[in-house]
């Protein structure tokens, strides 16, 4: 089994936290006590269970309904262990997104189907690529609000293609989905029959994990020298 670390990024309100919540929820990775906590919240606020609360762990985040700092979540499928970094979308918290992106193997860039590619889409894609991420998923979210319309999806893919070409991104996979309703997140959606590709989770399970480091140009990092200076090891340095 190997580990895939990925980050969710994109503009504020594109549904990053909801997507992670949905991924955890539909892959049975949320425990009963945590579900009970969500249910309790729903009872006081009304409406649907708010899946974003699974990752928005700070009081200020829940009060304001936004993500301020990166959160880390973990889940495992029979294929892989996943380390998820949920990044904030607001411009003023971009520095926190950078911290999260630095250790990711793959970036899921979310786009709201109604808004299309926006400034933060470009900024986050640029930063993720600058930090060394090679695998991108363009997740066109909230497609339910755009009538699951293929032309909406194709237009966004075409717009994003320009960014990908500019940044020379070789591995971009576009997936139409609705995080709120779970379309194409874990299971393929019957609402999006025109799309023949994998669901997001299927893709995450099969994408190759990039190599740890360049093994042909090694760098030797000296962090600390171990010098026990005991009788048996009078002159050991390690």
């Amino acid at each position: 089994m190997d580990i895939l670390r990925f980050i969710t990024c994109g503009s504020v309100d594109d549904g990053k936290s909801t997507l992670i919540g949905r991924l955890l929820y539909d892959s049975d990775s949320v425990s009963l006590d945590v579900l009970a906590m969500l249910e309790k919240r729903r009872a006081t606020t009304g409406g649907d269970v708010d899946l974003a609360l699974l990752t928005d762990g700070l009081k200020a985040e829940r009060e304001q309904g936004i993500t301020i700092d990166v959160a880390h979540k973990y889940f495992t499928t029979p294929r892989r262990k996943f380390i998820i970094t949920d990044a904030p979308g607001h411009v003023q918290y971009t520095r926190n997104m950078v911290t999260g992106a630095s250790n990711a193997d793959l970036a899921i860039v979310l786009v709201d189907a109604r808004q299309g590619v926006v400034e933060q889409t470009r900024r986050h894609t640029l930063l993720a690529s600058l930090l060394g991420i090679r695998h991108f998923v363009l997740a066109v979210n909230k497609l339910d609000l755009a009538g699951y319309d293929e032309t909406v999806f194709q237009q966004i893919v075409a717009d994003y293609q320009l960014i990908a070409e500019q940044l020379k991104l070789d591995h971009v996979v576009a997936i139409p989905l609705s995080a709120l309703h779970g379309d194409n997140v874990v299971r393929r959606s019957k609402h999006i029959a025109w799309y023949g590709g994998p669901s997001l989770l299927e893709h995450l399970e099969s994408v190759p994990v990039p190599a740890e480091a360049n093994p042909y140009e090694p760098r030797f990092q000296v962090q600390y020298v171990i010098r026990p200076q005991t009788e048996e090891l009078p002159d050991y340095r390690g």
Binding site: L54, T55, G57, L58, H72, K73, T99
Partner: peptide, 11 residues
């Protein structure tokens, strides 16, 4: 970080 949601936020 998997223990609790505030821990999930900590460096």
């Amino acid at each position: 970080r998997d223990e609790e949601k505030a821990r999930a936020k900590e460096r």
